[in-house]
Design a protein around this nucleic acid. Structure first.
Lengths: 256, 256
DNA sequence: ATAAATTTGTTCGTATGTATA
DNA sequence: CTATACATACGAACAAATTTA
């Protein structure tokens, strides 16, 4: 490969492939040239071609299939999970199920509850002492039989002990808001802290996150006034979800 | 390296390094063994060691410095950008500046406005005809003289033409809510669609996103009732920001 | 149903370049 | 200036998965 600039060959090839993808010359599902073809086209060794592919795979633009080829990833439609639906009645189901059904998927889930003690970070979020008793529930959510969301929920047992909802999801299935309503705890608002990062290996495995795709990581806490009621960590593959928030803007009382 | 399982050597080494980092045996800022040391330690060739490092660098766990070594990335505190601050007065400044100041940073920004026509996607978000006149403004936001947020904002010129706020940010600096207030458009709510993905090269360059770190990508639209008023694309490095949303839960009127 | 060809994945060796201490 | 350490790049071989003959 004629190397006029000082830029490494593998980056120039990555640039070329990337622009062909982003410009639309290569579309979702299209097959890239084979490594052998690119070696000839660009006049470089195999290691350079593979490094170039590594780069754009790390950007989530292509996926490799051993024995077959490298393909442009096509944008699947994202499930839109909406919080703060305007004009909505009080939520009675889980936000997950609503989002899945709105996307024409059939939602299902597994869960596993266990009483344990609150780690430092969770205790702070729930406003309780570190080490206090909590109910921890791991959820795995499925859409069309594919796992799409992982969640770990914590509730202080001071709140639910001895009530019909001490064990989440026991009996009928409803969301946190409705469950808490049923024991006289009336949730007023929810705070979600949204972050993104590369998946941990078990997350990539569990959620089938393709290489180069990050996860959305959400810390959610439900409140009754100033008092935290439930908190959860939520993880989804970023190429499957859009998290949508509708937030009211308060009306200014004075016109300074 | 003794390879009992069928798992490739570079993945086993990556697993080992990853667990040493996540377990805390290697902490932020610590230097990994050199490639030569790892070749001896694990009994593999250099290419295997480098592939292992490539893996954990792609996960955002380490950064390489040529001529120096490979170091564990340390978690810098994230700026928390809050939307829906409860008990807040009507916003008069930009959410960006508020978040920066709350983190003890000094916010600044550059912008460039230009009249253009609405592309398809923007027209849909603004509820106008594709090709209609819009004012487009590119922003680059800085905290402590480092670029930390990119934004592209669109407003329909049908709304602002001939008003004092036709050019965003001309004159005094205030947020969209206050600007629109001043021409009698009273924003009622904002919708933010949050996604994450690997950065484009120019984004990684502009925002100094380290390898293995995704970006948060937000489509924000301000509304006056049902009518969209302004929409913007917002991009930040995911290792610098937490986006926080406080969403009220409506009170159920009927107890079915 | 088998064998051969194709294609990507893993791993070795070697050499040279570039940035830092 | 020299040694160290990571970056780029050549060639070669075999493995594993898939497709084709």
């Amino acid at each position: 490969m004629a190397n006029f600039s000082g830029r490494p060959a593998y980056l120039q090839i990555a640039d070329d492939l990337r622009s062909r993808i982003l410009d639309g010359a290569l579309r979702g599902g299209d097959k890239l040239p084979t490594e052998a073809e690119m070696m000839a086209d660009y006049g470089v060794s195999r290691i350079v071609v593979r490094q170039a592919i590594d780069v754009i795979r790390g950007e989530g633009l292509v996926v490799s299939q051993r024995g077959v080829g490298v393909f442009v990833r096509d944008q699947q439609p994202r499930t839109r999970r909406i919080l703060g639906d305007l004009y909505a009645q009080r939520a009675t189901g889980s936000p997950f199920a609503a989002a899945a059904r709105a996307s024409g998927q059939s939602p299902e889930w597994e869960y596993q509850s266990r009483q344990t003690t609150a780690p430092q970070a969770i205790a702070e979020r729930l406003g309780i002492e570190s080490g206090a008793d909590v109910m921890r529930t791991h959820y795995r959510f499925f859409a069309d039989n594919q796992p799409v969301m992982l969640s770990t929920s914590y509730e202080s047992l001071d709140l639910t002990r001895g009530t019909p909802v001490e064990h989440p999801e026991a009996g009928q299935v409803k969301g946190v808001v409705a469950r808490m309503d049923s024991i006289g705890v009336h949730i007023t608002h929810v705070i979600e802290d949204v972050q993104a990062r590369a998946p941990r290996p078990y997350e990539a495995e569990a959620l089938q996150v393709p290489a180069g795709v990050p996860v959305l990581y959400v810390e959610r806490t439900y409140f009754e006034g100033q008092r935290p009621v439930e908190t959860a960590d939520i993880i989804v593959s970023a190429d499957r979800y859009t998290f949508s928030y509708a937030v009211p803007i308060p009306i200014r009382s004075t016109n300074r």
